[in-house]
Nucleic acid binder design. Structure first.
Length: 747
DNA sequence: ATAGGGTTAG
């Protein structure tokens, strides 16, 4: 508490008072505008070159003005270049650049500039300092923040309410609550921002009562106060309460801001109040806010949730590709933060529509255009790569992180571990994990889940034990990983005891995922009775997912009677879920009960239930190639099919036989054999074989589970071709090598 | 120049 007393010394440092940021902001070149009021201003690049040539950059004021123009148009790479050319840098020069990078969220650059500035003997002013604090808050860099705060107190820099707010925010973001509360009490001048910071901080901590209390007792609420409380309540899971506040905001007469619209749209879609969302959309258009990245992404999410995918993708499609082009005057300019989000939502939107390729390509072109992409966005994209299983793109982004010199901390590391393990490279995931020594629960959980995904049950368990030894408290996600690990390897006893540990030692209430994992554990090991008892003992018989898992175990262990009774029940209670139909039909056909299988299929057809079309994809260099069953759309299709036919023949010679039973398709019976030999994973595999060098491992991703025939086929292929073949299905990875699979045919 | 919208693991 050494520097709790905020009696700033009134000693003015000369340059602080003499540097009036705002008055110099417009002044030096204003004549440019007055003479050409209607014409667009000359391109900034030309101005820059002009001044460079005639030596104007020696005039610091003029150079600063030019610098500020670059920063205002978010052209940070130009700004940085100009900055290097300015001969005599004053405090303002540094401040303009630093605040620009702070606004863009490039904290690392801000920190290094700040250090450089101090080393060069330029004295930071309150504007520089609030930018630095903003970055410290963003990165939760308490150490640096404290140091700078100490420096302020030692040097008696005159602070204003803005600076104090940024300090307050720093301590709250770093969870130094006692200190922050004391700081708040002692603030000489508090404004609405100070209150909003406090209210927001309590909500982040989940202290709804305290924040609501503060909010209600605060008479000078502005639109941000309302946004904060509404969004915070929503984040804390109090969606109804949030909606109430939204209504009182309207009653109160506070005008909506862009943020309010964005929050309201998310609220509407999370409460499934599609009508509310639809009412908001035209108002968004009326306010001209449809170019706001946040709002756009909320609209996409809302329409996506209510099944209007077309509408959502239209909203995405409206974004011109040069929307975010930064820099010159003639082009639409956006606030950098919103720009990054809009861009990021565009990438996510593509992914959400299954257009991984477009999404990641957009990212790559963005990197080329923007020098600065903040790390949060990068993390979002890494998780996109993880879900797409796009190893090559993921690697490029990993390289990009190295290039910009960002430290791989627990946050970034977790997403990289997830990306590598979901893309099939557990070794790379292990390598990242080995490089980070942080007792972070998410970090450890990603590694545990990665092992589980690859069937490395023992490794997952030893990681989990290691984590406990380090004193890291596991959470509910950790247990999902651990239980999955047990169920993939059939470690019944361990699974049971970890489930108990979760409830008794860590007081975590099991969620659907944990229950499903337990039912999976018992069921896959063939303990069907125990699985059934578990379901009833835990009162989870109303959950569709546990029965679906149970049903798939019935199929695995060929217990057709139990399977049938469960399916019947499922077809009644969840008639629109395709899972039960598919499983039941497959179970019937694999037991040669063709008629019953056909009945199930026609019932499904009658009820208009459609199964998710199976897709497989494989990445080759910069492209993802996607295949569906019987796909003829690929440019190499002739080559693929003829190779596939000859491969089937060669595999049959070494023992592969076509497995007739199984896998439902919405087609006539006689087409069955043809179809099965043209399953999407076979096409993707052949495409991979043709286009890569001998012995290169092949990685294939699938959006549904791999069928028995394909599993068998790939086993033989891995033997014949001496290739490692890695397949990711919805549940786990299969590593095929020399004729066998890492799952031990247990999936 | 400070606060609010998207942010890693199931």
């Amino acid at each position: 508490m050494g520097f709790c007393n905020l009696g700033y010394c009134r000693k003015f440092i000369n340059h602080v008072s003499s540097t009036n940021f705002h008055s110099r902001w417009r002044h030096p070149c204003s004549f440019l505008y007055s003479t050409t009021s209607n014409a667009s201003p000359p391109p900034l690049g030309a101005l820059h070159g002009h001044y460079f040539k005639n030596g104007s950059l020696q005039n610091t004021n003029l150079a600063n003005y030019l610098l500020s123009l670059h920063v205002k148009s978010s052209n940070m790479n130009h700004a940085h270049k100009l900055f290097d050319e300015i001969l005599h840098k004053d405090t303002q020069t540094w401040t303009i650049l630093i605040s620009g990078f702070a606004r863009a969220g490039s904290s690392e650059i801000v920190f290094s500039l700040f250090r450089e500035m101090q080393a060069k003997g330029a004295c930071p002013n309150q504007y520089t300092l609030s930018s630095v604090f903003k970055c410290c808050s963003g990165e939760s860099n308490l150490q640096l923040g404290k140091g700078v705060h100490g420096w302020i107190l030692r040097n008696g820099v005159d602070g204003d309410v803005v600076l104090e707010n940024s300090i307050l925010d720093l301590y709250l973001k770093c969870k130094a609550f006692e200190y922050a509360e004391c700081f708040f009490e002692l603030m000489v001048e508090k404004d609405v921002v100070s209150w909003n910071i406090m209210i927001g901080a309590y909500l982040r901590e989940g202290d709804v009562e305290k924040s609501l209390d503060m909010f209600r007792n605060f008479p000078y609420k502005d639109v941000v106060s309302w946004n904060t409380i509404i969004d915070g309540l929503m984040q804390c899971g109090y969606e109804r309460l949030a909606l109430e506040q939204l209504y009182s905001m309207v009653k109160h007469g506070t005008e909506f801001s862009a943020v309010t619209f964005s929050i309201a749209l998310i609220l509407a879609s999370s409460l499934s109040l599609v009508e509310v969302g639809r009412q908001i959309h035209p108002r968004v258009l009326k306010f001209g806010l449809n170019n706001d990245g946040f709002i756009r992404s909320s609209l996409v999410e809302m329409y996506g949730k209510c099944g209007k995918i077309d509408k959502a993708s239209t909203i995405l499609k409206d974004v011109p590709l040069n929307f975010l082009r930064k820099g010159n005057f003639g082009v639409t300019r956006m606030e950098p933060k919103a720009g990054i989000v809009s861009w990021s939502s565009m990438v996510s939107g593509y992914v959400w529509n299954g257009k991984y390729e477009d999404g990641i390509k957009t990212f790559m072109s963005m990197i080329r255009e923007l020098v600065v992409v903040d790390i949060r966005t990068v993390v979002t994209i890494i998780s996109t790569c993880a879900n797409a299983g796009a190893l090559e793109f993921g690697k490029q982004i990993h390289a990009y992180i190295k290039k910009i010199g960002h430290r791989v901390d627990a946050y970034v590391g977790s997403s990289l571990i997830d990306m590598y393990s979901k893309s099939g490279s557990l070794d790379d995931a292990r390598m990242i994990f080995g490089q980070i020594n942080e007792p972070n629960v998410v970090l450890w959980t990603s590694m545990i889940s990665g092992c589980a995904l690859h069937g490395q049950g023992r490794e997952a368990i030893s990681l989990f034990e290691g984590m406990l030894n380090k004193g890291i408290i596991p959470n509910e996600v950790t247990f999902v990983g651990v239980l999955n690990a047990c169920s993939h390897v059939g470690l019944i006893e361990e699974g049971r005891s970890y489930f108990r540990m979760m409830k008794d030692t860590y007081h975590i209430n099991p969620e659907v995922e944990h229950y499903t994992s337990m039912v999976n554990l018992y069921g896959r090991a063939g303990h069907l009775i125990e699985a059934k008892n578990f379901i009833f003992e835990n009162g989870i018989a109303h959950l569709t997912s546990v029965w679906t898992s149970f049903l798939s175990s019935c199929r695995l262990h060929k217990n057709i009677e139990m399977g049938k009774s469960v399916s019947k029940m499922l077809l009644q209670s969840a008639p629109s879920d395709p899972g039960a139909y598919v499983l039941l039909s497959n179970m019937c056909s694999s037991n040669h009960r063709w008629d019953e299988a056909a009945t199930v299929r026609s019932l499904m057809h009658q009820r208009g239930v459609r199964k998710q079309p199976g897709q497989s994809w494989i990445q080759l260099k910069d492209q993802i190639h996607t295949f569906v069953v019987g796909d003829r759309s690929h440019p190499q299709d002739k080559k693929i099919y003829s190779y596939l036919d000859s491969l089937i023949g060669r595999l049959k010679e070494i023992g592969y036989s076509y497995d007739a039973k199984l896998v439902m398709q919405d087609v006539e019976e006689e087409q069955r054999e043809v179809l099965i030999s043209h399953h999407s994973e076979k096409l993707a595999l052949v495409f991979g074989i043709i286009n890569t060098l001998h012995r290169t491992p092949i990685r294939i991703m699938k959006n549904i589970r791999i069928c028995t025939d394909c599993h068998n086929f790939i086993k033989y292929a891995s033997q014949l071709l001496e290739r490692q073949i890695i397949v990711r299905d919805t549940h786990r990875f299969h590593h095929f090598k020399q004729g066998s699979c890492s799952c031990g045919d247990y999936w």
